[in-house]
Design a protein around this nucleic acid. Structure first.
Length: 568
RNA sequence: GUCUCAGUAGCUCAGUAGGAUAGAGCAACAGCCUUCUAAGCUGUGGGUCGGGGGUUCGAAUCCCUCCUGAGACGCCA
């Protein structure tokens, strides 16, 4: 509806003496369809114009009526209610979707932008839990959105492949590990060894010294330590890759923490040169008290670097070498303070692009109300969740559509879609308590609902024997049914919602939008006959609308990282 | 203790660049398949928008304060 909003704003601007953009922002959707398609509240202008809102509304209405751009304009108190020319708008929306669906969404505002976006970033030798789904899928969706708007996206998987825990992994593996078992199920087995190590170390503190020694050997390049470490990485990556393939997730760069081992000295040097480093309690820190932030530790009292140092080195690399002119981090909200500190230090280092860095935070995933903890072995494996969801999808297919070809493939798309959509549809800052009953429910506001709606539209088009070309002349002279218009209105919000989703880096807006469109489509499908329309031109138009809806839904699903089967 | 984030129907959440009677889904109940996929559609019941102040023509939305929950707060990431 953006173009209609601007049409109104342009006409109203001279009347109220405010910039067009500002007025366009005030145009809203009335709460009730009887009140028109768009509305402009005029209370805001009253003080400046020294006139009653109702008077202003009347003047505004007169101008809008005179323009002849709208079907009807009405004044209701201080509101001006506008009824748009439905046929023309319908033709515009359907036409855009028929040629290039993305035209309705993206105006390619971000051409010339390049965004380095850090998402997923699991830890090596640990399993991929449901918790990782958040960073992975929110990040993947944001990457898709930015790319569609013209940005050059560099997706980065910042693997946790370094740190003292690898001393424990190595020590544990040497004591109790078995090559075959690890190979068969790398992340689960390595986690088990890790958990066992923690349990045993409680009783025998000497084990911790053993682990420290092994990490030291790893740092010093000891061959045995090195090759075990590399093997853990290779096996873990194989397991992760299988999951990424199922989820359809891809990264341009896979660079673990260890990649920056030789790049941190330069950061420390620069900080020292710029006089940012001060000594405090034996450690070297950047004092940020002037900015109401706690100090950022750069070197621990034992001389070793820490994750802040690593993240600084990584940020410089992403900007200077990979060419990301802004950096985005899709990382849990518990790291908010850390990123505030890192961004501030970058700014103090004179990197003016620090202001464009964003931490896309999200709430914590819990299970039965409890915090998940890998160290204590409290994990819900993502693969288990996907397996259950796919099995449930398969069960429902067997029940409802036993004749369906390639059932397994469809079940895979639906089951995974249910899990992914469930994670994307809500405001990302909320903590989520993972419950199987939610994920395995395929009714209502769910991924399968959206996919089902898509399949339904496809089915109608199949029955109609539709080829890809329509004679679009019909739209403007057809009188629209309420449910048809409702559907057009919802789809016409694409551009606004898309841009808001990008500006706020929030894919849930796209999920909400496509849910609204699906609801409108299902109502349309229920209320008016498509193939059995009274006249040929009505039938033609409804098929066009069905085709447009199908493309719209598929486009949104793909943005969110879901597949859109044509039958289910 | 300090800071940050959250608090909307029984449950999960939309709505938060201030606007008209606060909306969905789930669960419950009642309808709708001789017609295009019922994983759907329609209806009913269900609300001190955490409490209290304030700003405004108008507040779930902005400000202050209190309550509750989560997270963070120097050598893990």
């Amino acid at each position: 509806m953006k173009s209609q909003k601007f049409t109104i704003a342009e006409l109203v601007a001279p009347v109220v003496g405010l910039p067009t953009v500002e007025i366009a922002g005030l145009v809203e959707y009335p709460p009730n369809p009887d009140l028109g398609d768009l509305a402009l509240p005029c209370f805001r202008f009253a003080k400046q114009l020294r006139k009653a809102p109702t008077e202003i509304a009347k003047e505004v209405a007169a101008v809008l009526t005179e323009s002849g751009n709208f079907k009807d304009v009405a004044v209701a108190g201080g509101y001006v209610n506008v009824y748009v020319a439905q046929g023309a708008v319908a033709k515009e929306v359907v036409g855009a979707l028929r040629t290039e669906p993305q035209n309705l969404f993206a105006e390619k505002r971000l051409i010339g932008d390049s965004a380095a976006i850090d998402y997923s970033s699991p830890n090596i030798a640990k399993p991929f839990g449901v918790g990782h789904l958040r960073s992975t899928m929110i990040g993947h969706a944001i990457a898709n959105l930015l790319r569609e708007d013209g940005s050059r996206v560099i997706g980065i998987n910042h693997l946790g492949d370094w740190g003292t825990q690898f001393g424990k992994n190595i020590a544990a593996y040497r004591m109790w590990g078995d090559e075959e078992t690890v190979r068969k199920n790398p992340t689960r087995e390595l986690l088990e060894l890790y958990v066992r190590f923690h349990a045993e170390a409680e009783k025998h503190p000497a084990l911790d010294d053993e682990a420290r020694a092994w990490f030291k050997r790893l740092e010093d390049g000891d061959e045995e330590a090195r090759s075990l470490w590399q093997w853990f990485i290779d096996e873990s990556l194989k397991a992760f890759q299988a999951t990424y393939d199922r989820l359809g997730v891809h990264h341009e760069q896979v660079l673990g923490e260890s990649f920056y081992n030789d790049k941190m000295d330069a950061v420390v040097e620069e900080l020292k040169e710029k006089g940012l480093l001060t000594e405090s309690e034996g450690a070297e820190v950047v004092d940020l008290s002037a900015y109401d932030l706690p100090p950022c530790i750069i070197r621990k009292s034992d001389g070793a670097t820490i994750y802040a140092t690593r993240d600084l080195a990584a940020a410089l690399y992403r900007h200077d070498v990979l060419g990301g002119n802004r950096l985005i981090y899709v990382v849990g909200a518990e790291q908010t303070l850390h990123f505030q500190q890192v961004f501030k230090v970058l700014e103090l280092m004179g990197r003016e692009w620090a202001k464009d860095c964003r931490h896309v935070a999200f709430g914590m995933m819990k299970y039965n109300g409890e915090r998940l903890s890998t160290r204590r072995g409290k994990v819900v494996y993502l693969e288990d969740v996907l397996e259950k969801a796919v099995a449930e999808a398969r069960r429902i297919i067997d029940e409802k559509n036993p004749e369906l070809p390639n059932k397994d493939d469809v079940a895979e798309a639906i089951g995974i879609g249910a899990v992914v959509f469930n994670d994307l549809k809500n405001y990302r800052m909320h903590d989520v308590d993972f419950r199987y009953e939610d994920v395995l429910n395929f009714d209502g506001e769910t991924g399968p609902y959206v996919q089902y709606t898509h399949a339904r539209a496809c089915s109608v088009l199949r029955k109609a024997g539709v080829k890809d070309n329509f004679d679009s002349s019909s739209a403007s002279d057809v009188v629209l049914q309420p449910s048809e218009w409702r559907l057009i209105v919802e789809m016409n919000k694409a551009n606004e919602m898309f841009e808001r989703a990008i500006d706020q880096l929030d894919p849930s807006l796209i999920a909400r939008l496509v849910l609204d469109v699906c609801h409108a489509f299902n109502r349309f499908y229920h209320d008016v006959p498509i193939l059995g329309a009274d006249t040929e031109s009505e039938k033609e138009f409804r098929l066009e609308l069905t085709d447009a809806s199908r493309r719209f839904i598929a486009y949104c699903l793909n943005l969110l990282g879901l597949r859109a089967p044509e039958a289910m």
